[in-house]
Design a protein around this nucleic acid. Structure first.
Lengths: 112, 112
DNA sequence: ACAATAGTTAAGCAAATACTTCAGTGTTTG
DNA sequence: CAAACACTGAAGTATTTGCTTAACTATTGT
């Protein structure tokens, strides 16, 4: 389960845009067509398709075309990969011997 | 604990570059100076400073100057914010009533 | 068959990125 | 005090991004 730098580039880049995060957010509540994804966004359908291609290239979203409708869904495994990369760095820091005290204090009374 | 879109933009954008992830990775193992961060990277010190400014603007890294040395350290709270945004979307998807079966099956035998 | 629907593709453009080099600014050290 | 050190900032440049419009390709409904 090694982290491929190129895929991380694509995933974080994909998540760095508010329109694309909006699309991911929508898809987290269930599959949707391109037009459904486009509907709440203030931009052309063409722009939405381009964003969708970025998401698909990153692996965060998978799409499938049936007839004239392209149905999009989230790929939880990819989300998990991005999540995991961040989590590893955070824990490496928080579990350092000299920081462990701070960490335990924080997790105890959940002031964080 | 609402997610500020602009900050998420900056954080994911910051993480979308391999050099900046390398710097975060280094910093997760402990604080470092600018030159120490630059040492393993094949680019000018000036470029590294620019990357560092991106990281600092995103809130992922905090720096402090003492004498002529700028010491950089990771900001775990910011990492957690990014991590949390992804985690929320993934769980929203995985805990959908109609998907719950799949999710439970997967977490049970850890095939994932 | 015809029109409406759903999406795709290409071209073009302004703005943002990821560097470079070069010329500084303070800060230690000998 | 002078040289080395650790950055810092500005300017320039090539590439990438995030759109737009417009023309096009399939499907589906009447």
């Amino acid at each position: 389960m090694l982290h491929d730098p190129a895929q991380l580039d694509l995933m974080f880049q994909a998540l760095a845009d508010p329109a694309r995060r909006h699309m991911v957010e929508r898809l987290s509540r269930g599959p949707a067509s391109v037009s459904q994804l486009a509907e709440p966004l203030a931009m052309s359908l063409s722009a939405v398709v381009q964003h969708l291609n970025v998401l698909e290239a990153s692996g965060l979203v998978r799409t499938e075309k049936l007839g004239r409708v392209r149905t999009c869904r989230i790929e939880p495994k990819a989300l998990r990969t991005a999540e995991h990369w961040i989590n590893e760095r955070r824990l490496t820091w928080e579990l350092r011997p000299d920081r462990l005290g701070d960490f335990l204090a924080k997790t105890k009374d959940e002031t964080d």
